[in-house]
Simulated scan of single mutants.
Amino acid sequence: MAEGSSNNANVDTSRSERAVWLMKCPPVVSRSLSSSSASDSLRPVAKVIVSLDPLLANDDDDSPPQFTMELAGTESGNAPKCYSMDMSQDFIPMAVFSESSQGETAVEGKILNKFDMKPHNENIQNYGKLCRERTSKYMTKSRQIQVIDNDNGSHMRPMPGMVIASAVSDKKKMPTKGSDMKRTRRDRGEMEEILFKLFERQPNWTLRQLIQETDQPEQFLKDLLKDLCVYNNKGTNQGTYELKPEYKRSGEESTPK
């Protein structure tokens, strides 16, 4: 018996030299082992198979044995029953402790080998199905049904004097006519040069396009277009402005050949 340093309690060390395996297993294996041991303590929960190659197992070869675990029962139809156990001896020396319901502490043994479990190759398809089922389960939103006590619908009908907040907010969000920013007029000569350059880019423009390009007041732009352009009332260019012939000719004559 050894005396603990923290609370002066006795620690049972009679099994301290017993060899113990440390096994890192997936949650599905842990749940299966726990449920099987809880239902029947005398029933085997799993079987470990050790495979040795007699042709390689000799004094000159240190080939490790292969470990495989087969579960006695699983919680899901697609949960793998066979797992490969990768053994590792490169770890910090550790011991296993236990505590009973009466608060008694005991050393259950020291860890000899460490194992990392993964689904066996023959069960990899079932493991893939299990992962997809788990992902689908967590992505599916659960629906809730609430029973309404007052099912006559009187509380759902608008009463006199009630104001619907959504309708009021929608009215507030309606845009006002015209632009919120007041456009500043440019100098007339400067605007004429800008318009000539725009009509050099393309021969026909609508009033809305010119307002967007020049950012000028609509009435001021109409006065300029009345002096410089012709409005097309019909034809393929209906609804657009184009330069008067005299301005077109002056533009062609000023262009160097």
Rank of each mutant, 00 (worst) to 15 (best):
K197N: 12
E99S: 07
G103S: 13
I111L: 00
G77Q: 02
L210I: 01
F67A: 12
E70R: 05
L112V: 04
L224F: 09
D60N: 09
S136T: 06
G109V: 06
P203I: 04
M1S: 08
V29T: 06
R132W: 13
V96E: 07
K226D: 13
N204F: 07
N233F: 13
V20E: 12
R188E: 11
V28K: 10
G4E: 08
A9T: 15
I164A: 08
D149T: 14
A57S: 06
S32Y: 01
L198E: 07
R157A: 11
V11A: 04
N10P: 09
K110F: 06
M85S: 01
D86C: 10
Y241N: 00
G4H: 06
E193S: 07
R43Y: 14
S30T: 11
M174D: 02
S35K: 14
A57H: 01
E108N: 05
V107P: 05
S32Q: 00
M156C: 06
K110V: 02
P26R: 04
T240R: 12
P27C: 02
S142H: 11
K177L: 14
K182N: 05
S39D: 09
K234N: 07
V163Y: 01
S5A: 15
F220G: 07
P203T: 12
R157I: 13
F199T: 14
N123G: 00
S34F: 09
E99W: 08
S63H: 09
Y127R: 03
D116A: 02
T236K: 11
E218W: 05
M181E: 12
C229H: 01
T135S: 11
